[in-house]
């Protein structure tokens, strides 16, 4: 198992480094100089030259990359072009807020997705199972941003129960107001993912239930509910871990959209802002941070999987 984990760790490092190269390359190597992008079409050559000097853009590319990269390692994300502040703290603050959304969402997806999937698999063919399958179809087909719109129309505009946009920090506004701002964004984030996870858990649970070892356990006279809990469930949940890791990636995508719609001041919204306003350091920094989180989530999932799966955890032969 240690060699497996070592390889995975090395892979994560490699991916992060490669991402820095990729981000840098795309931003700097594509046609049009960066300064031109920032200043717009009608900038004078002098202005462009001055900006390039200021930003260090007239230096060779690899030097620029190296400066930026070493800065990253130190935690220095450069200066935000639009906000006249260091980019690092801006990113971190936004990260903190997105993290709230993300963690609540992942926990909900895990609990509800797995729970509904298991329920469906153990009650195959009943109304609840069929209903769930139908809903899954439905939820997968509705785009996230449209959900947001629908949910805003319904809960915020027509019913007026919940605020449509914005965010209130916990310590300022108290628990209820803080939670209110979170309910709509979180629900739109989790709906599609719950459908996805429950579907997968259902089929993986069914596979476990129909396996030979479950038949053998029944033949030993073990009561059905113990068979399901002790024999089928652990084997069915292993693939769920991998799926949840992939879902973190989808969640990230969803967060970008959801934050944009609900004007939630998180990392996703910051990224869109950076793109719209050509704030290069913020944009690059944001992308690196998001990729790092995704890579770490996948690594965590792999570690969990390796620990829980005896076939990877224990190797060699016995007897």
């Amino acid at each position: 198992m240690t060699s497996f984990l070592a390889r995975r760790f090395a892979s994560v490092i490699f991916v992060l480094w490669a991402m820095t190269v990729l981000v840098f390359a795309i931003v700097h190597v594509l046609p049009g100089s960066v300064a031109h992008m920032i200043l717009g079409e009608f900038a004078t050559t002098d202005a462009i030259a001055a900006l390039e000097e200021r930003l260090g853009l007239n230096q060779p590319l690899y030097v620029q990359y190296w400066t930026w990269f070493t800065g990253l390692l130190r935690g220095d994300f450069g200066m935000s072009l639009t906000m006249e502040r260091p980019a690092g703290p801006v990113i971190l603050e936004a990260l903190g807020r997105s993290a709230i959304l993300a963690s609540i969402s992942i926990v909900l997806v895990a609990i509800l997705g797995i729970g509904l999937g298991i329920h469906s698999a153990t009650h195959v063919g009943t109304w609840s199972d069929r209903g769930l399958t139908l809903m899954q179809y439905f939820f997968i087909a509705v785009p996230e941003f449209f959900w947001c719109i629908l949910v805003i129309i319904f809960f915020a505009v027509w019913l007026g129960w919940l605020p449509a946009t914005g965010y209130a920090p916990l310590h300022e506004a108290g628990f209820w107001r803080w939670a209110q701002h979170l309910i709509l964004p979180v629900s739109t984030l989790v709906l599609g993912l719950i459908a996805h996870v429950s579907r997968l858990v259902r089929s993986s649970m069914l596979e476990a239930i129909e396996s030979r070892y479950v038949l053998a356990a029944r033949a030993k006279g073990i009561p059905e509910r113990i068979v399901l809990r002790r024999h089928a469930l652990p084997n069915a949940l292993l693939p769920a871990i991998t799926v949840l890791a992939v879902d973190v990636g989808i969640l990230i995508g969803g967060i970008v959209v959801v934050e944009s719609v609900f004007a939630f001041p998180g990392l996703g919204r910051m990224l869109i802002y950076a793109i719209d306003n050509q704030d290069i350091p913020l944009m690059m920094g944001g992308m690196i941070v998001i990729t790092a989180i995704y890579a770490l989530a996948n690594l965590a999932a792999d570690i969990l999987y390796a620990v829980l799966n005896p076939r990877i955890r224990v190797s060699g032969s016995a007897g």
């Binding site: 991916v15 991402m19 995508g253 969803g254 995704y294």
Partner: peptide, 18 residues
Amino acid sequence: DLMISIPPVLLGLLILAV
């Protein structure tokens, strides 16, 4: 593997941002 490590929306953003 490298490309899969990047969340889809992000990759799209990256390409289109510039």
